[in-house]
Every structure is written in C-alpha cells, then in structure tokens.
Amino acid sequence: MHALHVSDLTVSYDKKPVLEDVSFSIPNGSITGIIGPNGAGKSTLIKSILRLIPSITGEVKVYGEPYAQQKKLIGYVPQRSEVDWDFPTNALDVVLMGRYRHIGIFKRAKKAEITWARECLQKVGMLGYAERQISQLSGGQQQRVFLARALAQDAMVYFMDEPFSGVDAATERAIIQLMKNWKQEGKTVIVVHHDLQTVEDYFDHVLLLNKQLVDFGETPKVFTLENLEKTYGGKIAFLQKTPSTEKEHHAHGHLAFESE
C-alpha cells in the first residue's frame, strides 16, 4: 500500500516553472528524505502536495484516495522561519493549534484537548516550557514546539520542511527519535533535508529533486555519486573519500554541497 502517490505534478510561480512533471509513490511506514540544492523546489513540492499553493497539473493520492478526502491524515511541520515568533502566544497554545480541527470552529479547547497538548509537549521534552512565550524559546525549542504540534495532529503521513536547520544536537536527536517512533507506528514521514552527510543514516528512501525528479527509491540504490552530480550539477565536493565511495562509486556520508 502506498501512503502517498503523486503523479505529473507541475507547479509554476508567475509562469516561471518550478516543478516539472514530478511523479513518485512513497510506501507506507517509511522515512523519505527530499534532497536537492537551494531553490530546487523542495518546499514547493511539499506545499503543492498539501494544496497550500496551486499546481498546474498533477494528482495526489493518500492511501489510494484523492488528497481532498484524506486531509485529516496529514501532519505538517513548516519551515521554522516561516512564522513570526514574536507573535503573542505561548508554547502550549501553539501545540493546541494542531487540535483545532478536532475542537471545531466557534468552540474553545476543552480540558481533554489541553491535556493531550501537554502530553505532546512532554514527548518532545518541552513540558516545562508550556507557558513560555514563544519568542523566549531557542531555535531548537521552537522546532520542538512545532514537532509537538504535529504530534498533536495525530496524523498518518507527516511532512517536515528542514526540521534540522538551526537546531542543537539534542533537538536533532529528539527529531530522529520521533521519526523512528512514527515509523514504528506504521506512519509515513517525508522530510526536506539538506545535509548530505546524514542522509544515509536518517532515511530509508531518498527523493532527489532539482526542478524535475532526478531519482527516487531506496537510499542505497538512489543516493549515488552519479545521481548527486545530476542533482547538484557537478557542484559536489568530497570532503573525504572512503574506500567504499571509491570502489562502489557510491556516496557514503562524506559529501558536501559546495555553495557558491
């Protein structure tokens, strides 16, 4: 059973094409990394799947049904930089936002919802910060609040946009743990990621993207030097060549993307 099926997705901003004919199917209970250079359209891919921005063509199915009918199965962790952290609200309140669909319009959060939100904060080690104004949190703590909100959504398919960027090592470990728990519960996780060094450790599937889909599949098969060169246009530098990379022509955790 495929958790997510995307076919012929094409997106453009002001007539400038950003994604062309992207198709792939992600198996249930897997962790997929979306990899590609800056401006490759990674965020755009997630946003168009989630219908946050319009697509020109394309079809998205979740567990075999059209996306519109399956919205409640989707959880989303946006890029942290996309919101104003000076907003007058606290951590608990942000986590509760993940429950708004369950609470319903016109109604206020009941006790049970608040208890649930607190549990989610606890799971990411943030219960002690529940009443803390969100601007008073560190980058890593803010990311954990976003994770707790996603947890609160109680979804089946999770999308995360660069959850590791600008977070401390402890938060990075917490995110990994959460992803693994989700996988164990049979949930599917799709993560935009840019650190090539950790790809093989974190993801069992990789989607290489640069405007078009370069390749998609199980990490050992797809995460190869050849594919990476196609994705990054040859701007790949070896930090350290390991025997395995040389022999198997297979990238192995020692690559870096050289930004100009």
Partner: peptide, 22 residues
C-alpha cells in the same frame, strides 16, 4: 469572538491553517 481561534491561527501560521483545512 466567534472566530477568535481561527483568526489567531490564520495570523500566526496561515500555511498550517490552510493545511488543517481552515
């Protein structure tokens, strides 16, 4: 008052609000 919670989420994180179907 009626739309307070929905206004709050739309102001804070419109993408997420759209994502959960507001």
């Amino acid at each position: 008052m009626l739309f307070f919670k929905e206004f709050k989420l739309t102001l804070f994180d419109p993408q997420f609000a759209k994502g959960i179907g507001l």
